[in-house]
């Protein structure tokens, strides 16, 4: 079963998000779940994997995004509830 930890990196503007996704996928063994756009320039990159991998990749992703664009916030949910996964349209 894939890791259940979810990592979020949210930036304003897409360049930062693409940099963050690139850094995250290279840093650790995580899987890109979704890139969510909610208007107003807010774009969120969402990765999943083991807690340790997600933690290190989110840190790297946040740093990469901050260098290029405007980093809004980052978050790690170690073990999200199934309904949250269902919201994202992903199997836990």
């Amino acid at each position: 079963m894939a890791g259940v930890a979810l990592g979020f990196v949210e930036t304003r503007g897409n360049t930062g998000t693409i940099m963050a996704i690139d850094a995250m996928l290279k840093t650790a063994n995580v899987e890109l779940v979704q890139r969510v756009e909610i208007g107003g320039g807010y774009v969120t990159a969402l990765v999943r994997g083991e807690v340790g991998a997600v933690k290190s990749s989110v840190e790297a992703g946040a740093e990469a995004a901050a260098r290029v664009g405007e980093l809004v916030c980052t978050n790690i949910i170690p073990s999200a509830h199934e309904e949250v996964f269902e919201q994202l349209g992903v199997k836990k």
Binding site: T44, N75, V84
Partner: peptide, 15 residues
């Protein structure tokens, strides 16, 4: 304001 905060709220709420 922001998707990350929303998902954290959803997770905390449903738990």
């Amino acid at each position: 304001l922001g998707f990350t905060a929303a998902m954290q709220a959803a997770d905390a709420a449903v738990k």
